[in-house]
């Protein structure tokens, strides 16, 4: 991943009548980066994506992909970008093989039938689109989006409706594309996916940029509490319940006591000292840092931060 921006948004605005969907956001996406675009429904993700894809025109600011304006240079951009739309739109009678041949020919690329195999739809390559399951349709659209080896790939909820195996295969394909230098803009509601896959994420809220950074940076800037779950052989922490000064709050679930703390080191030291004091033994101890999902919920629940 290089630090050269390949996608640039500067004070980008999109309005629909009197409603402002995106209100002056600016950020760069670097070459070879997987960039997660997160936000609740109506945050402006789709408007941003559709303007970048050249499907809509921005109402203010500038956006560039590889130095080209998606609205003005849409034809030049076609071979540089790959797009997997959220709603798969293909003619109902087209077969996966025909779709691959058709779209690759419009991109002046050789058909990538191997992608049909890889995404598990080769057995359905002669089946009409409307006869494919929702998951198969999504996988086909994904195969078409990457078949011409785009420099920038836009994925809108790529794993929605996919089974576990397809999801794993998609993530592996994304990493492979990234290794080959493809930049990926991933719009998703799946926080775990965004956290696992993205080098950086941006959280949009009410058309504004609420947070941007690596998943680690974003989770670190919150007031999120680390979750420490402990189970011991003699339940010495449970009967009676023992808590410590560094613990903000705790709860009991089955035979576990779960502490929430900002000072993980002090809490762990207190837990171990208490267990030793009671001559008890640890059966299970788990320390879980605040997830991107926790941070996302924190940001969205309080209306966002700059």
């Amino acid at each position: 991943m290089s630090a050269t921006p390949i996608v640039t948004l500067q004070d980008f605005r999109k309005t629909y009548g009197t409603f402002t969907a995106v209100d002056g956001i600016s950020f760069d996406i670097h070459e070879g980066e997987i960039f997660g675009l997160l936000g609740p429904n109506g945050a402006g993700k789709t408007s941003t994506l559709e303007c970048l894809e050249g499907l809509r025109r921005p109402d203010g600011g500038t956006m560039k992909i590889a130095g080209l304006d998606p609205a003005a240079d849409s034809l030049k951009l076609r071979n540089l970008i790959g797009v997997q739309l959220q709603a798969a739109g293909l003619p109902e009678s087209i077969t996966p093989r025909e779709a691959m041949r058709l779209f690759c020919s419009y991109h002046n690329a050789a058909p990538r039938y191997d992608l049909l195999e890889r995404l598990g739809i080769s057995e359905k390559s002669q089946t009409q689109f409307y006869e494919l399951s929702a998951g198969q349709q999504r996988r086909l659209v994904l195969a078409l989006a990457v078949a011409h080896d785009p420099k920038v790939l836009f994925l809108d909820e790529p794993t929605a409706g996919l089974d576990v195996a397809s999801r794993v295969e998609l993530h592996s394909l994304m990493k492979e594309l990234q290794a080959r230098g493809t930049t990926i803009l991933l719009a998703t509601h799946d926080m775990a996916e965004a956290e696992d896959m993205s080098d950086r994420v941006a959280i949009l809220l009410k058309g504004r940029l609420a947070a941007i950074g690596t998943p680690m940076q974003i989770t670190a800037t919150g007031a999120g509490l680390t979750r420490i779950s402990v189970r011991t052989e003699c339940d010495s922490l449970l009967h009676p319940v023992i808590t410590f000064p560094s613990v903000q709050h705790f709860k009991v679930e089955e035979q576990y006591i779960i502490y929430f703390s900002q000072n993980v080191g002090a809490t762990l030291a207190d837990i171990i000292a208490s267990i030793n004091l009671h001559k008890d033994t640890i059966i299970d101890l788990r320390v879980e840092r605040p997830s991107l999902e926790d941070r996302f919920l924190e940001i969205t629940s309080r209306g966002g931060v700059r």
Binding site: E53, G54, L55, S74, L75, R78, N79, I81, V83, L85, A87, A88, G89, L90, P91, F103, Y106, H107, V141, L144
Partner: peptide
């Protein structure tokens, strides 16, 4: 139907 079902959108982004 093609316009309503987003087929034209797919065509546009693929250079048709």
């Amino acid at each position: 139907n093609a316009r309503e079902n987003g087929i034209f959108r797919s065509y546009k982004i693929n250079g048709v």
